[in-house]
Design a protein around this nucleic acid. Structure first.
Lengths: 110, 110
DNA sequence: ATATTATATCAATTATTCATGATATATGGA
DNA sequence: TCCATATATCATGAATAATTGATATAATAT
């Protein structure tokens, strides 16, 4: 992850529909969702959703796979990992107590 | 953290100077940096830096403290925690292996 | 009080981004 | 082949955001 990619990712996440889409895809996890269903669930028109999915795709935050006529989208956890690592780089120098709560926040509690 | 706050934070991080500022403040940690020194280190004009710091401030990503004539800025790890938690909410439903690498990426290795 | 230093705000121009109607492409079915 | 469905692209007007010169405020020093 470099600065250009990170900017692209943050920019993608800084718009309401796209943030909703990404969080939805994070929740559904590895099974992903078809483009059309994402649009229906969020109440967004077809071409608007398509444009927003393209932005997320270019930012590397989502992947897609064609499946017959529909195209299924998935959150890309690898990019997420790179993005958070980039943002928190060297965060712990001398004060791991600052960083620790951040880690705990996203820790899986199952 | 709600959607409005998250959008404000991502929007703040989606600009080159501000991303640099935030990462710098993450690195220096609890001692923070005076506004002027941030500008010098990043080669950004005074009023541009001031405007960008205000954006980060309004997004809750940084805090500041007056210290005589200078104003010292700090990364706000609490907001960071809320932001990442919001983004990864329910990420682990059924597949913690997707989420685990993301956590490991920001884990403190000292 | 006046000057100096540090930072913030204002106004205006330029540049980006967004949603949308219209249209194009791609797949599957009849 | 022709039609229907699913998704993507294009062009454009409207809204937002970025940079900057000029100026204002706030704290310290003389």
């Amino acid at each position: 992850m470099d600065s250009i990619e990170a900017l692209s990712a943050f920019s993608a996440l800084s718009q309401s529909t796209r943030l909703d889409v990404f969080r939805l895809l994070v929740k559904v996890g590895s099974q992903g969702l078809p483009s059309g269903e994402i649009g229906e669930r969020l109440g967004v028109r077809q071409n608007t959703m398509s444009a927003n999915l393209t932005v997320l795709l270019n930012a590397g935050l989502v992947r897609n796979e064609r499946e017959g006529r529909t195209i299924r989208y998935f959150a890309d956890f690898e990019t997420m990992r790179g993005l958070l690592g980039f943002l928190m780089e060297d965060c712990c120098g001398g004060r791991p107590d600052l960083c620790q709560p951040v880690i705990e926040e996203i820790a899986c509690i199952l």
